[in-house]
Design a protein around this nucleic acid. Structure first.
Lengths: 335, 335
DNA sequence: TTGTAGGCGTTATCAT
DNA sequence: ATGATAACGCCTACAA
């Protein structure tokens, strides 16, 4: 059995409550007893039992991460592990523990959340994606349980979230291509049910408008996933249709990879920009320009928002916007 | 406040201990009371408090993962997240929780381990790497705390570990190249201090011997890291030396990537095989053959070993060997 | 400034 | 088959 607070109290010749007060730096404890108690703790190598403490405080100081398991995305895209790392940076330096679980579906995600809440293991939850009509968010709101979302939720009122400014990011990409002299710019996106998609589309349209260019609905391809296959299909159809195009923007690197494949097959070589700056984009031939969304910082800010609110600290904003950066590579002519 | 066992007991008109017995399916409880209690639990939507339970049992049913943070390896190589996923598969289906932390150095790893043990949060630990003279392993052994290592430790006696059969894996690669008709096979390895290196070298020599071929020390290049640069340097020197070579095997994809770069520069195009089947190997041009070491399964088995031993279940072996698979791609002539 | 006592929610031992 | 009771280790009113 491990050393308990009582052992320390006995050795120091005081009561357990006094030891507890010393641990918590209670001001009305005399310097003398503080020294004695500290000496006793050192000698016995005492360490408070976190489980007992949690029971007494009804707070575990741990937060739970709900990881989606969308096919193999998890493995090919470093987004998740980078965000996890970001979360750990803030959490660990604030003495919070981290729990995680992988779910196969939205339903399973809800189950794991239920489990975390009912068992009382976690003080708060981090969601890694914001879907349309999101069941996880709905459940957490219903239970009035603290959580933060990486990604902008549908109804952001009263919920914590962090995200990039996706409108601005795609606005920048589009403007960049326009400035390079391209006019017929294709946009390949993922499904509309994701906020990301809507916002990046918005940025695309805004940028064209700001430059006095008319947008052409034929050039906007909405895929039904974020996968390479989807990108390939979209691009292939477009190229076969003989519609005139000059450059491509995609809301995800993998959509862009697929599009590049289609272009190669058709012997076309259009400038293209992707999103997420996944490692593969720099190893491709040609290397692909992409927008870095800084997942580590997204994670850090998510953890900060959640933990500060758990500590009832004043949070200036309910959400944080993390900046993005366009990385220029061969596909847009930088050598 | 949440519903407690006492609330259920009151509603059902029994004592808390009876409710507890029902929860644990204690055989000597009458069918009648079982029904009544279950009804009460349903009605109140009772869920046991895991923290209180942990305190009473002195077991949290959670295991802690110690993740190294070796530069950017974490992000470029999906090994870690895949292994984490594997661990989650077994743990989640056995109602174990998962905690994780990232460490910047071996010292910090030890600190986090200490923290996990002292606070009492975890029942066991998963280590993601086995170093020479490993401080984490030493500490855990000293504390006699349950743990499992992914990778073969120096002194495997009395410790749980999972790994690939690295001798066999490289034996297969070498045999494969020999069967393709190559005789002068270069081997590029990482540092000798890693068990991986030694074992893969062993497999190489054994395969040559088995085929009646003499090994040539000039063809075995031992690098001082697993990096692309190292692979590049090794290969370049060899190519400049005019020693006759016909094929290349590397103990790591990144060594192989570097070697390929050197070959390109010298306008050579030798067959090559790497290790780890990292995503980049399939996106390279030409795509690179590589050995898949199955990190998900490594994780699953690690969790199984650890959790079964925590449950005092009989474990047939103290370690598990996970099979590998050679993925043929363009660099060894499969199109 | 310090000690006492009760409580956090569950489990396990010992009665009955 | 079920109920009291104590214990897990810590915290915190309240009392002194």
């Amino acid at each position: 059995m491990a050393i308990t607070i009582k052992d320390v109290a006995d050795l120091a010749g005081v009561s357990p409550s006094t030891v507890s007060r010393v641990i918590h730096n209670n001001p009305k404890i005399s310097e003398d007893t503080k020294k004695i108690v500290n000496a006793a703790m050192e000698k016995l190598k005492y360490h408070p039992n976190a489980v007992a403490r949690s029971l007494a405080n009804s707070s575990t100081k741990t937060i739970g991460l709900i990881l989606p398991n969308s096919s193999d995305d998890l493995f090919t895209r470093p987004f998740f592990i980078e965000a996890m790392r970001g979360i750990s940076i803030y959490a660990q330096s604030n003495n919070y523990n981290l729990m995680y679980c992988f779910s196969k579906s939205e339903e399973e995600e809800v189950q794991f959340i239920q489990n975390y809440l009912n068992s009382g293991w976690v003080d708060g939850i981090v969601l890694f994606t914001a879907r349309k009509d999101d069941k996880c968010i709905a459940y957490l709101k219903k239970r009035e349980f603290p959580f933060v979302v990486i990604g902008q939720p549908e109804n952001p009122e009263k919920t914590l979230w962090v995200d990039n400014d996706n409108i601005q990011a795609m606005y920048n990409v589009t403007s960049y291509l326009v400035e390079k002299g391209f006019r017929k710019i294709v946009l390949i996106t993922g499904p509309n049910q994701f906020a990301v998609t809507k916002n990046r589309k918005k940025g695309y349209f805004q940028a064209l408008k700001a430059r006095g260019l008319k947008s052409d609905p034929e050039l906007v391809l909405t895929g039904d996933s974020f996968s390479e296959e989807t990108g390939y299909e979209c691009m292939k159809k477009l190229l076969e249709s003989n519609i005139q195009i000059e450059a491509v923007a995609a809301t995800d690197d993998f959509l862009a990879f697929g599009a590049m494949k289609a272009m190669k097959e058709m012997n076309r070589d259009l400038p293209i920009v992707g999103f997420n700056n996944s490692p593969r984009s720099s190893f491709q031939t040609p290397s692909m320009s992409s927008v870095d969304i800084n997942p580590v910082l997204l994670g850090e800010n998510a953890a900060e928002l959640l933990i500060k609110s758990l500590q009832h600290k004043v949070i200036p904003f309910k959400n944080v916007i993390v900046g993005t950066r366009l990385i220029e590579r061969d596909t847009t002519g930088k050598y």
